[in-house]
Each structure stands twice: as C-alpha cells, then as structure tokens.
Amino acid sequence: MPLIDLANPTRFLGFVGRLVPWLTAVTIVLFAVGLYGAFFLAPDDYQQGATVKIMFIHVPCAWLSMFVYATMAASSLGTLVWRHPLADVSMKAAAPIGAVFTFVCLATGSLWGKPMWGTWWVWDARLTSVLVLFIMYLGLIALWQTIEDPIRGAKAVAVLTLVGAINLPIIKFSVDWWNTLHQPAAVFRLGGPTIDISMLWPLLVTALAATCLFVTLQLLAMKNEIKRRRLRTLRLIEASRPHAVAGTPVVGAAS
C-alpha cells in the first residue's frame, strides 16, 4: 500500500486497526526485556544504590516529553503548510499524552530526588525546563478546549506549538544560565556522561519501549479523534435537517 493512501482518514482507520495489536505486543516485549535487564542484570550505582532503577522510567519519560512535542511541531507544519486534516488530528491526540509523560517524568524525578538530594524538588536546570514544558503542554490543551470549531482551533494551536518549538531551546539556554548563577557549587549530576554498558542497554531498550507505547497510544487517540469529528459532522447534519425526518423515531427519545 503506498504511503499516500494513509492520508485518507478512512484508510487510516483500517491501517490503525491492523497495526495496533502488533505495536502493543512489541511494546510489552520491549518493556519486559528492558526492565528485566534493569532489575536483574544492571548493577546498582556505587553512589546512588538501587535508586538508579528509577532512571529506567524517568529517562524514557523525559525523552518522550521532548519527542511528543517534536511530533506535535511536525504535525503543526502539516496543518499550516499542507492543511491536512490528519495533521490536526495528530496534534490534538498528542497533547494530553505528552502532558502525561511529562508529568510522570517530573513525578519520578521528584521521587528520585527525595532520597538523593533530600528534597522533593530542586530548582535544577533540567527539572525547571521540564516544568516549563509541562506548563506549555497544559496551555496547548487549554487552547484546544477553548476553541469550539476544531479546524479553527487546530490552526491557533499549530501557531502556538511552532512558537513554543522555536522558544524551547532559548528557554533551556536561559534556565541553564539562571541555574549557574543561583545554584551552589556542588551540583549533583544525574547520570553523567559515563554510564556503563550494562546500564546503558536496558535504558535504551526501555526508551524504545516507551516510544512504541507512545506510538500505540497516539494511533488510538487519533482514531478516537477522527470518530469525534465524524460525530460532530453527523450532529451538524442532523441539526440542519428539517423536522420531517426527525419526527418519527425521536418522539420517544424526546419525552
């Protein structure tokens, strides 16, 4: 099947139906392999002990928080440049999923920070950037919720997503600057550049598993969104019909 055929939402629905079981299986297998490696094969960190196990979900979620935003930014281009309805759908489906993964990243980071740093939250450069990213996700969701017409809403969200994508590196840079000004000298570095291969491979596998998980969820959410739009179209058709048709069966429902 040529790729261009997927641009038709009906064919896309069929494609999703066939692909999702396979993707689910791949996700589960990858998570099983990655977490087996993380818990049974990877050694404890000599400084952090067993808490390093949190890394195997924290880092994949951090990766997803950025990957999902990149997906949304690419979809925004699809909306603004090619005006493709599937791009709108993809943007809308990704926002809540991205927000959830960003939240999990913050929460697991906090749970990792408490035993290691002694506090739940540090205004560390990385944590702060992720927090700003989380707020941006929530803002995008709020904008989706406010504009009723999905086509007009998609355009507004696309502009904001792209502006956010341009600004994110600058926010990251300025937070790093701010952090070096205010942070006391002894900064605990997460992970660090040297990571042993026995820890690296489970991390990469769980990151891949998380990516597969996101793709699965994204396809399912896109399917829902297409259905939601069809429902909206049908309701508009129903509302614009003369009463003659609605007369017969709806009487019972109206009473």
């Binding site: 067993a50 808490t51 949190i54 809540p96 993964f101 749970l111 399912l220 829902n224």
Partner: peptide
Amino acid sequence: LPSLGPHAGFILAAYAVFLVAVIGVVVWI
C-alpha cells in the same frame, strides 16, 4: 526480586506512578 536497598519505597512509588499514568491513559482512550 533483587534487594532494592533502603529506598525501596521510592523506587516502587516511581514505578507505580508510571503504571497508574499509563493505565489511566489506556483506559481513558
């Protein structure tokens, strides 16, 4: 299960957060 050391609660809580979030999204969808 290998011993999770003195901070087992934090590790399990982190995995629980992840699990609850993923299951929540799946159920919602």
